[in-house]
Computed example of a mutant assay.
Amino acid sequence: MADFLLVHGSCHGAWCWRDLIPELAALGHTARAIDMPSHGADPTPVSEVTLQGCRDAVLKACSPQTIVVGHSWGGYPISAAAEAQPTRIRALVYLCAYLPKDGMSMIEMRRQSPRQTIGDAVDKSADGLSYTVKPERVQDLFYHDCPAETVPYALSRLCPQAIAPQDTPLPLSDAFARVSKAYIQATNDRTIPPEYQKQMSFGVPEAMRHSIDSSHSPFFSHPGQLAEILDSIAIDLPHEGGAQATFQR
């Protein structure tokens, strides 16, 4: 079956995939989650976090058979990894994530959204290097449809998010375009507007576009359904040399 590598979004860590990993295992897949630099157990200082370092963390955990799932901001490091070493990745799955446009940073892409949802929900650090999400906004933004225990579990683990990698433009080429891609839109998302996700999903083939009636955190709210969608994606992936989506310019 498939080998999945799970890459978290802003302020999260490998811990957020807690409920999805056993669901994928029950379907016969292997699934691993990693901490991005400065998140979870990773000791990298926030001041040293770069998009290149996040990219390299993804590549280090990949094999040519790996399907890499990126959540939210995680769409950027997985795309950077595919651009750098496309033969080391079987496919990319964007889970309510930013699917980059050539030469744009994540912050620039967020500003192109038809609605801004998080501007008043974050606090920038005194040194200007990172931000955190206000605790009173966490449930509404990320977990409004999740089990009650999700919020205290997450609040004890959420961490500062380095700004520099999210403010770094990502040039893309035909190397990135050659990698198979799928998109999973969360239709009840309060962080990345669903209509913007739908727009970004046009960067993948129509047959590889999926949706889930979930908040920004389907790995907590609907882990079983999410695992089934990922299972379907793994089955439907084109064989090597099959048609791929053209990256967005």
Rank of each mutant, 00 (worst) to 15 (best):
C96T: 11
V122Y: 01
L129K: 14
E136F: 00
C62V: 04
E136K: 02
L172I: 04
V122I: 10
A148Q: 09
I67D: 07
P152Y: 00
A84F: 01
I118Y: 09
A80K: 08
P114W: 05
I118G: 12
D102H: 13
Q166C: 11
T87M: 15
Y94A: 00
T50S: 02
K60A: 12
D140K: 05
S72M: 07
D145S: 13
A164F: 06
G75L: 08
Q139W: 12
D120L: 11
I107T: 15
V49K: 04
D123Q: 14
A97T: 11
T150Y: 15
A121W: 04
A81P: 05
A164I: 09
M104F: 03
M106N: 09
C96E: 13
E83P: 07
G70S: 01
Y94G: 00
D140T: 10
P77H: 04
T132I: 07
P171T: 02
P64A: 13
P165D: 00
R55A: 04
L155M: 11
Q52I: 14
D127N: 09
Y153C: 12
A162F: 02
S105A: 08
R110T: 09
R88A: 14
Y94T: 00
Y143D: 06
D120R: 11
L99T: 01
V151F: 07
Q166A: 06
P135C: 05
L172G: 03
